Computed example of a mutant assay.
Amino acid sequence: MGRLGELERAVMDALWDRAEPATVRTVHADLVERGLAYTTVMTVLTRLTDKGLVRRERDGRAWRYAPAAAREDYIAELMLEALALTGDRGPALVRFANSVSTDEAEALRRALENPR
C-alpha cells in the first residue's frame, strides 16, 4: 500500500472525516487553510485513485471521491508492512506492545481474546 506524502495524507484525512463521497471542490474547501490550488487537489485525488486508495464515481459532470478503505485498515496495513521488514516479528511486536498506553494495551488484549 505504501506511505502517503504529507499532501496525500491531508487529502485522505479530509475524505476519511466525511461520511459521504466528496467532490474536488468540497475537499479543496476542507483544505483551504493550506492555500492549495483547486487543480492541485484534483491532481492528488486522481493520483490517489490511480494508487487504489480512493474510489470515484460520476455525479453529473463532477466526480465524487471516497476512501477505498477505512483509515484503520490503512494504518493496519502500514503496520503489517513495517513488520514485514523484519525477519523475526516477535521482538518488534514486543517492543511495540511495551510502547503503548494502558488503554491501548487493553484494546490489544481484548482483540486477541476475541478474534474475528
Rank of each mutant, 00 (worst) to 15 (best):
Y38D: 05
T102Q: 11
A37E: 15
E113F: 08
R64V: 10
E81S: 11
S101H: 08
R89Y: 05
L31A: 09
D59Y: 12
N98P: 00
L7C: 03
R25H: 08
G60E: 03
S99R: 12
Y74C: 01
A105M: 08
M42P: 00
D17Q: 12
A111R: 13
A29R: 15
R58L: 14
A14R: 01
W16S: 02
V32N: 06
K51R: 15
E81L: 14
V44G: 03
R3S: 11
N114Y: 10
E77H: 02
M1H: 04
K51Q: 14
R61T: 10
P21L: 05
P67D: 04
G52C: 04
M79N: 03
G52Q: 02
R95M: 06
A111M: 11
A62S: 13
R116Q: 06
A62V: 08
L83A: 11
R25I: 03
L93W: 09
M79W: 08
E72R: 14
A105W: 06
E106N: 04
T102D: 10
S101P: 07
T49D: 00
D17C: 07
E8C: 00
T23A: 14
E104P: 01
E6P: 07
A111E: 03
R89V: 10
T46D: 13
M1Q: 03
V41G: 00
R109L: 12
R95P: 00
W63S: 08
A97I: 12
I75R: 13
F96M: 15
K51M: 13
R61N: 09
E20T: 11
R3L: 11
E20A: 10
L112H: 01
L36V: 06
R58K: 15
E81V: 07
E72H: 07
T40K: 12
D59I: 06
T40M: 06
R55N: 07
V32S: 14
A19I: 05
R61E: 11
A92R: 09
L83G: 13
M1P: 06
V11P: 00
A22E: 10
R47K: 13
L36T: 06
V100T: 01
W63I: 01
L48Y: 07
A82F: 09
P91T: 07
R34T: 03
E6G: 10
T49R: 13
R58N: 08
R116P: 15
E81C: 04
A68F: 05
M1C: 01
W63G: 00
A29N: 13
R95D: 07
E57M: 11
T26E: 15
T26F: 05
G52S: 04
T40R: 14
A62I: 03
T46Q: 13
D88T: 09
E20K: 09
P91L: 08
A66H: 08
D17E: 14
A97L: 15
R58P: 13
A66P: 05
R58D: 12
L53F: 14
D88S: 13
R9G: 06
T43S: 13
D73V: 14
M1W: 01
L80A: 10
R9K: 12
V100F: 01
V94R: 03
T86A: 15
L108K: 02
R95Y: 02
L31P: 01
R116D: 09
R18A: 15
V11D: 08
G60F: 07
L15H: 04
G2Q: 12
R64S: 00
M1D: 02
R9I: 00
H28L: 07
G52H: 02
T46L: 11
V27T: 08
V44T: 15
L112E: 00
